[in-house]
Design a protein around this nucleic acid. Structure first.
Length: 719
DNA sequence: TGCTGCACTTAGTATTTTGATT
DNA sequence: AATCAAAATACTAAGTGCAGCA
């Protein structure tokens, strides 16, 4: 990697959501670190379903398999499973895998239900830590590592099981006490990543599910909750009332102050009114929803104040629903569905300056629903007296249910959970592609640098765009329909008005300033020095153009992607984001960690690295609502600690003085104790302070997204 | 070549749960 | 037991990219 591609955080300056101007006052500072957050995360990690971590394990295993193959096994399949079995010893599932293999994905037979909670030992990660000096690369190193690897794997498995079955709460120390008696797991996780994938476009052979769960019907308000128009009480028809409640529920939200939102809402609301209502209600400003609003607030208060039993009951009911509708059977396996509930009606909450915000999102009925399942499955039954729009059997797609949404006219789907085979495989592939990119990225970079000099405008534009995508991790930037969505852009759709060129800026040459709204109307602001050629090209591209003209007028995403496809199979613009996020993580980890750091220090480093990635990808969030308050609380804690510290110090002093006079064992001991106390408090204080800085720094940065979508779990595992 | 529709990933926010602390 | 922050999860909007068509 050439030097100018290292993404360091000072490249990226400050960014914020523009449509929320009060939130952007804080400058992005040099980030510091957080100690405990991750600490806790790892140390405890009780409840499973951390899909991500789960995946880490899967990848890990899969990789191991690959190594084995390289080691010269001939018959992939069998060997694979034999070895695996051996490894897993008595794990009770002998033959299971094999069977699956054989009857492939025939219809029903017996279905194995996967334990839905995939626990994942945090310790497991630790124990792996130095296992491999992995590189973010497709290179496997079969040799020596293998044996060691296997051993550890065994151990890890045990731990894994152990944790799983025990739901242990105690945070154990180091890996040492991890592997007690490994309990036998009755239910074995399905290791889809050890199986063959479908090749042709087929996504499954058998699919059975119960269909979606519809939103509960509207419950009219009690008669004492009134709506007033122009000061006068007015009883609304149920249809109009329902829509009114949508608005009433949002009264505290900024949305309801926005003109577009109000306008759209009012227009759609009127459509639901009776002729009479329509004739009376002509001005939203004269509508008084406060009683309704208060009613809903009271409702949610009441819900919070419910007794344990009541809460239990609701929980149980949810659980029942989940058990019944939350799973499907796909190719012999019971898999979790991500979103089995149909989106309830409400007001559309577009992000940024969305022209359609406030529009009524219709209630979805069975006759809007398309069911997808296999022919030989038991079809889901529509609610009594209703019909599905269609039942189809398309095994080239992964969705179970779809419907067309009325705001944008786009299609919504019900699909599987990320832990499912179908999603996991895709995710795995994504990182594989990114690894392949690593192998040829140098060549690609050389090429686009060359292309900056091309005689053809379209090639130059393509090359510069690619440079941005690579260096700054910009998104591709498909064009979008004007007026249908918020005005946001990505690389290919950048307009002249989105960048400023400075031949000279703060001591640096050829600085480009980006300022635009990207996905979700998150502001991207960055000032970055570029190479002279790029700069000259940009000047050229911007010549004689209006601010709202396209910067790359000879380029769009499909041209760019077509080009990328030629350079490397499967390469598209977004692969660069994955690649650069992952490589940044890896670099940062390398840079920040020293081999013999203690655990907290390592965790700290991991967090920093993670944050660097989030900054690179411009992942932001609105500062949490309770931010100010929680900050104050923390500050109070710090102050208290400080007091405590000075007290302790004083005590230490007097103890010392005392010891000097008395010169006996007892007083000496007392000094020691006091000294330790001071030390302890100092440590605690430091921790708190770090926490404070960290929280401040993290205010606007969202770490989750990168962790979830961009960072190859193998890097974390290897580390 | 451009357009559109579809399928799927990525994203931020809202809500719920957890677990630590007082 | 009450409170609160953080983590996990639910939700759904907003992207990407491809295929099929004219």
């Amino acid at each position: 990697m050439s030097g100018d591609h290292s993404h360091n955080e000072d490249q990226i300056d400050y960014a914020s959501r523009v449509n929320d101007s009060h939130k952007q006052k804080d400058k992005y500072k040099e980030y510091k670190h957080k100690e405990h957050k991750k600490d806790k995360e790892r140390e405890k990690s009780k409840h499973g379903n951390s899909d991500h971590k789960d995946l880490e394990k899967k990848y890990k295993d899969k990789e191991k398999e690959k190594m084995k193959h390289k080691d010269g096994s001939t018959d992939k399949h069998k060997d694979k499973h034999k070895e695996k079995r051996k490894e897993e010893k008595m794990k009770s599932l002998d033959g299971k895998i094999k069977k699956e293999k054989e009857n492939g994905f025939a219809s029903p037979p017996h279905v194995k239900s996967e334990p839905e909670n995939d626990y994942h030992s945090p310790k497991y990660e630790k124990s792996l830590k130095r296992e491999r000096d992995d590189d973010y690369e497709a290179e496997f190193k079969p040799k020596k590592i293998k044996t060691e690897n296997d051993k550890k794997a065994k151990k890890r498995k045990q731990e894994d099981e152990d944790i799983k079955s025990k739901k242990t709460k105690s945070k154990k120390g180091e890996a040492a006490d991890g592997k007690k008696k490994a309990k036998q797991e009755p239910e074995q996780k399905w290791k889809w990543w050890e199986e063959e994938r479908y090749t042709d476009g087929v996504k499954w052979k058998f699919l059975e599910h119960k269909g979606p769960v519809f939103a509960p019907p509207y419950e009219p308000l009690p008669s004492n909750v009134k709506f007033y128009y122009d000061g006068k009480h007015m009883k609304l028809s149920p249809e109009a009332e329902e829509v009114a409640t949508f608005f009433a529920k949002m009264l505290d939200h900024e949305y309801t102050t926005k003109d577009i939102f109000r306008k759209n809402f009012f227009k759609d609301w009127r459509k639901e009114m009776t002729a009479e209502e329509k004739s009376i209600i002509t001005d939203l400003k004269k509508c008084n929803f406060t009683e309704m609003n208060e009613y809903f607030k009271a409702q949610s208060e009441a819900r919070k104040a419910m007794t344990k039993e009541q809460k239990q009951k609701i929980k149980a009911e949810n659980e029942r629903l989940l058990q019944e509708y939350g799973f499907c059977i796909m190719d012999n396996h019971k898999e979790r569905i991500a979103n089995f509930r149909i989106e309830p009606p409400g007001l559309f909450r577009g992000r940024g300056d969305h022209p359609k915000m406030g529009m009524l999102k219709r209630r979805i009925r069975p006759q809007d629903i398309i069911i997808n399942c296999s022919k030989d499955s038991k079809y889901p039954t529509p609610p009594p007296g209703t019909k599905w729009k269609e039942v189809r059997h398309d095994n080239k797609v992964t969705w179970l249910v779809s419907w067309t949404e009325n705001i944008q006219g786009s299609i919504k789907y019900i699909m599987l959970n990320p832990s499912s085979r179908i999603k996991g495989e895709k995710d795995w592939q994504k990182y594989e592609t990114a690894r392949r990119l690593k192998k040829c990225v140098d060549r690609l970079r050389a090429q686009y640098r060359e292309d900056w000099k091309s005689k053809e405008m379209r090639i130059r534009q393509r090359a510069v765009a690619l440079y941005f995508i690579d260096k700054l991790a910009l998104r591709a930037g498909n064009e979008k329909e004007e007026g249908e969505t918020a005005d946001t852009v990505g690389c290919c759709s950048l307009r002249v008005e989105h960048l400023k060129l400075y031949p000279e800026n703060e001591g640096q040459e050829f600085v480009v300033e980006f300022d635009f709204l990207g996905k979700d109307s998150i502001r991207y602001y960055n000032r970055v020095p570029v190479e002279k050629r790029v700069f000259k090209n940009l000047q050229l591209f911007m010549e004689n153009k209006e601010p709202d003209d396209d910067l790359f007028d000879r380029l769009n995403t499909s041209i760019l992607n077509k080009h990328l496809q030629e350079l490397m199979d499967g390469l598209t613009a977004k692969v660069f984001r994955t690649y650069n996020a992952s490589i940044t993580l890896q670099q940062q980890l390398k840079e920040l960690t020293t081999a013999d750091d203690n655990i907290p220090a390592k965790i700290l480093s991991y967090n920093r690295a993670n944050r660097a990635v989030a900054i690179l990808c411009n992942h932001q969030r609105a500062p949490p609502k309770t931010f100010e308050k929680s900050m104050q609380n923390l500050q109070a804690k710090i102050d208290a600690k400080k007091d405590q510290l000075s007290d302790a110090k004083r005590e230490l002093k007097s103890a010392k003085a005392d010891a000097k006079v008395r010169r006996d064992e007892k007083s000496k001991k007392a000094v020691e104790t006091k000294r330790k106390a001071v030390q302890r408090i100092e440590e605690q204080l430091m921790k708190l302070e770090v926490q404070a800085t960290d929280r401040e720094e993290n205010k606007q940065i969202a770490l989750g997204t990168s962790k979830l979508n961009y960072l190859d779990p193998r890097i974390s595992v290897a580390w």
